[in-house]
Design a protein around this nucleic acid. Structure first.
Lengths: 164, 164
DNA sequence: TAGTTTTCCTACCGAATTACTAGGGAAGTA
DNA sequence: TACTTCCCTAGTAATTCGGTAGGAAAACTA
């Protein structure tokens, strides 16, 4: 391949900085426990997240009902529910913007014609699979470094870690 | 609209217009067979894709070795290899870059600390899963509307089609 | 040879999104 | 009151997305 080969960074399945930060912040809260609130800045420092940016994300998590906050002296954030009842999928959904039907086009509304007709079930299958994985893994699982066996098994295929 | 709309689900899983168009164009070529080249404009008409935009995409597919082209009178594009040897994943990667990334970075290049340490194997598992599905389904499968059974079964889950 | 067809290339464009930053106000605590 | 911490609005630089425009280069046709 030539030197001019531009590395296109656009992707099929992309976890945004927002979603990544949101999950990591939630994991810090899960690790801290339900009775010790963490300040936004402490989380930002611990995970290397821009602190003002994180504040906005924590606001989303609060409005999404995943987190509760307390202002003033000994304030901070804590999880609104037990860490083993919050799936990673929930955190991503809440942080990554409007979840219900983006751009007004939901998969069932797409119309494919000709040899592309079977594309829709394929996209649906991929989506279902991603949701299944991220929906079964909880904050408690990740914070305790104990992923479910079926997920671990997927990740330990050596080829899974290679490019591209 | 309709056919050209990008598909984005609530988990950050997004198929760009580029990737969608690329796959559909490749499917037209698969359906046309190996001996009858299709002109860019014919593909664009058949699938409702802006024709100048499609030209650029077909160029990527050619440079990626998936397609061969012929100029002049009876020219056009055809697949460089048999349709049952080209996976959907390949087409998307060539047209749109890596399949999965976090914050624009490929999972193996990420470094997580503290309670977020196990996030990496999780992203890897998700990526492995997407690659498994899109890597096992070929252009021939979709063009013939014959998806592998395990993939079909995934799309059957009624919950897969619902919103949040 | 000229003319036609089709790919191929470079450049540009507006709108949207992403990832932040700035500044201050509101609420709670000591 | 003073201090802390969350909370809210706005701005913004850079990049990406989804296209357009115009024409040069190659192949075929006559």
């Amino acid at each position: 391949m030539g030197t001019g080969a531009a590395v296109r960074d656009n992707l099929g399945m992309r976890i945004s900085a927002r979603a990544d930060y949101a999950v990591r912040a939630a994991l810090e809260l899960a690790a801290a426990g339900d009775d010790t609130p963490l300040k936004a800045e402490a989380i930002a420092d611990a995970q290397g997240i821009p602190h003002k940016f994180l504040e906005g994300i924590l606001g989303d998590l609060r409005r999404g009902g995943l987190v509760v906050s307390q202002r003033g002296g000994k304030g901070g954030y804590r999880l609104a529910r037990p860490a083993d009842s919050i799936a990673i999928a929930e955190v991503i959904r809440v942080a990554d913007g409007p979840l219900v039907s983006v751009r007004g086009v939901r998969p069932p509304d797409l119309s494919y014609i000709g040899p592309a007709e079977s594309l829709l079930p394929l996209w649906i299958a991929v989506r279902a699979n991603v949701r299944k994985i991220l929906g079964e893994v909880t904050l408690a699982d990740v914070a305790a470094a104990k992923l479910p066996d079926d997920v671990l098994h997927l990740a330990d295929d050596p080829e899974a870690w290679t490019n591209p």
